[in-house]
Design a protein around this nucleic acid. Sequence first.
DNA 1: ATGTCACGTGAAACGTGA
Length: 283
Amino acid sequence: MRLATWNVNSAKSRLPRLLPWLDERAPDVVCLQETKLSDADWAAELDGPIAERGYEIAHHGQGRWNGVALLSRVGLTDVVRGLPDEPEFDGSVDARAVTATCGGLRVTSVYVPNGRTPDDPHYGFKLRWLEALRRQVTGGDAATTVVAGDMNIAPTDADVWDPAVFVDSTHVTPPEREALAALQATGLQDVVRDRWPTDRVFSYWDYRAGRFHKDLGMRIDLVLCGADPAGRVEAAWIDRKARKGSGPSDHAPVIVDLDDAPDGDIGPVVPPPSTPAKLPNRT
DNA sequence: ATGTCACGTGAAACGTGA
């Protein structure tokens, strides 16, 4: 099973990149963030071409900002929009989380609040939102949980291109990193970092200043896996190709392949190859 | 280089957010 997450920075404007990417990478479950569409506009513009490719869809949108979605062709049931006791900002709840059961996993697509600056009210909102996300995970079966999306946190200084640039900025402050660590302490593994423990691995590059070309990025898009999916990881990588070319998102997709054979199942028993019958000699 | 996008407004440039 191939699982992916991608902050598309507007699903409508990214359609010319999203559809070919679905065709090329053929993910089974996709978490999208920053769709920037209402549910009605998503249905009008995206439902058709995505359903045509065999996906069931759960979109949780609000319009101009935010918006998340789950696409699945391995089942999509028990859809929940938002988080339990989700905190408000400026008097309303944003569209930042959608959860469903896909292929036996409880998957949540998340767009964690940016925080803006550490002294902005949005920063406290970010911390409260992360706590609500942690509570949701503790209320479920952590072993089969996947939380994937734009966390807007670089887990360590190795996840930013220059830690000096980010001093006193959001994405790297200790309270954010502690909130992420508390989320992971429910039993979730950062499977990309596990796979590439010492490599320079980024998922986001600012559009400005040629940052992608110079590989001056950050790793803020994470796939966090409970024990079951974490134990089945066959590959985990950033699809940098999707950040190249014309009209890309500023984020690249993260792709994780899981072994579909459950524990103890060695797959179909294949009989040993028999001696091939000799082809009749041609004369 | 504060260097780019995307969206809404409203009909072109500007404010907002990232």
